[in-house]
Structures are given as structure tokens and as C-alpha cells.
Design a protein around this nucleic acid. Structure first.
Lengths: 155, 155
DNA sequence: TTTTTAGTTCTGCAATAAGAGAACTAAATT
DNA sequence: AATTTAGTTCTCTTATTGCAGAACTAAAAA
């Protein structure tokens, strides 16, 4: 019995955050793992603690953890004289997610640019709308780092 | 034979943009429809033009178009003395997508806040990181509208 | 040397999803 | 009145996914 005791509120929050995370592309098992690591009182949990708390199979736990490790959304620590790994949420996750979305935006802009360059010139109205959109993406991209910096210095 | 003639470059761009769109949650058929409407020389295409150009079945075309209409990612116009509907890309799409992501961010922030409020106080280091993240999200949320406005006036 | 630990890997199943194809429908044409 | 048009809806197939359960493995402990 390695299961972690959770309050009803904690369970509720795990499901709630879990659903949000699922919507951004993780599997239910992965989503719950991330959520658990953010919500449980202990910040580092072992394989079996995660498995039993979330009532997952070994395979789901193993695959979930490894996928999250590879995606760099969690890490683990080890302790001397203890073979277990202790997994913890990478708080950077959202910073990373954010950056990922930003990079995605850059790509969208680039494709849009390529599309516009290859569009017929017979549809100026449409093309102008597209150009405007691209311009906004470009502007956002330019301004965002400054926004970041401003926040950092404000800290 | 209602199919639209596309250059190799146009076909390539449809697939390229299609894949990006699929990653953000649309089906392949939907993704190609959106892409086609952004790339084809004619800005408004009929049901059969879309169907034949993309080599889709009637059902896939019908369901795809209706889903996109409901999601407000495309619109259509009609012409007098012509029963067909002519579908066109809503250039606003990306503005909307952008806004959607922004709203998503607001929700993420809110859940994080709720989590933090319910966290044990025994883990100050972890909690501080979380607080910092929340603060950034909050900051971004606050600053974003101003950024938008600045762009608009610059136009 | 045997057993235990801390996982990993390998089937296999159940649920879901995307889309084809055919049958259908309602309005407009002939 | 019969046919065509412009789709819609229904059924079925195929592919994929998420996960359970069991078998397996490598290192450490007994």
C-alpha cells in the first residue's frame, strides 16, 4: 500500500487539471500524473506511489512517466541507498509550454507567409487580410521577448 | 469534373498547412478544406469543387464543412439563381484561434491559483515557483490587450 | 544462489474516430 | 410527373489509441 492519501479537494483538482491537460494533447494517464505531482503534499513521488494513488497499471505508469520524461515535463531525483526514482513536476513546464506555443506561432506565420507569396494577385482583398494577420503575428513575435524581459526585471 | 486545378506548389502548401492544422485538433479532411480555401486562386468554392479537388467522399465533405461552419472557421455566400453555397475561409480564424488560446491561458491560470491555494504550506520552494508562474500568466494577461491596441493604432 | 525490487516490454482488447459508400431527401428543373 | 441538384444521414470498415495484465529483465539484497 504505497498509495498517497488525498483529500476530496485534491482529487477534484487532479481531475480538473487532468481534463485541461488532456485537451492540450496528453493521455488521461499522463495528465493525471502531471496533476498529481502538482497537487500532492509531497513534491516527489515514487513509481509505486504514483501507480497506486492513480490506480494505474504498471505499463501505463511506466509509459506515462517515460513519455513525460522525454517531453521534459517531469524530472526525477534519486536518493543514496535507495533504488527508487522520485518523480517531480517540472515547474518550468508551463514556461516550456508557453515557449512551445510561441514557436508554433512562428511556424504558422512562416507558412502563412509562404502561402501569401504564392497566392494569385487577383484577390487583393483576401491577400490584404492575410498580410494583416501576418503582420500582427510578426509584431507579436517581436514584442514578446521585451514583454518577458519587462516582467523579469519587475520581479 | 468540378475539381480545381492546383499547381504542385499549391498542393504542397495544402499538405503542409494541413499537417499544422491537424496538430491543433482538426481532422485531416477539415484541415485540407481550410488549407484549400486559403490557397486556391478562387476564394470561394462550392461543395463539389472542394469534394473533387480534395478527393473526399460526400459524407466527409458534408461533415467537414458543417463542423467548420459551426466552429466559425469558415463561412459561405450564396448567389442569386444558384442553389450552391460557396464556402470561404474566415480570415478571422487565426485571430479567433489566438483569442481561444488566450482564454485557455486564463483558465490555466485560474486552476493553478486554485491549486496553489489548496497546497500544503510545507513546500515553500515549490509553492514559490508556482506563484511566480501564476504571476507571469497574470502579467501577460494584463499586458496583452495593450499590446493589441498598440498594434492596431500603429496600423 | 535464490529472491526481491523496480521497473520494462509484449501481447491483446475495448473504445473511439475518420471517412467511404450508398441510401435518402427536399427543392428546383425539365 | 419525372429528373436533377445539392447536399444529408446512415451503416460499415479500417486504423489508431490507451491501457490492462502478464511475462520478462537487470541489479541489488538476503
Amino acid at each position: 500500500m504505497a498509495a498517497i492519501k488525498l483529500s476530496e479537494k485534491q482529487k477534484e483538482l487532479i481531475e480538473k487539471l487532468g481534463i485541461m491537460l488532456e485537451r492540450s494533447g496528453t493521455t488521461p494517464a499522463q495528465a493525471r500524473i502531471i496533476a498529481l505531482l502538482m497537487i500532492s503534499d509531497r513534491v516527489e513521488l515514487s513509481f509505486d506511489e504514483i501507480r497506486e494513488t492513480l490506480q494505474l497499471s504498471k505499463s501505463a505508469t511506466s509509459n506515462g512517466l517515460n513519455t513525460l520524461l522525454m517531453a521534459d515535463r517531469i524530472t526525477y531525483t534519486t536518493k543514496m541507498g535507495d533504488r527508487k526514482r522520485y518523480f517531480k513536476s517540472k515547474m518550468a513546464t508551463l514556461g516550456t509550454d508557453f515557449e512551445k506555443q510561441f514557436n508554433q506561432l512562428v511556424k504558422v506565420k512562416e507558412i502563412f507567409q509562404e502561402i501569401l507569396e504564392n497566392r494569385t494577385k487577383e484577390t487583393p482583398e483576401f491577400n490584404d487580410k492575410m498580410a494583416k494577420l501576418i503582420d500582427f503575428l510578426d509584431y507579436f513575435q517581436q514584442e514578446f521577448p521585451a514583454l518577458m524581459k519587462k516582467w523579469e526585471t519587475r520581479q
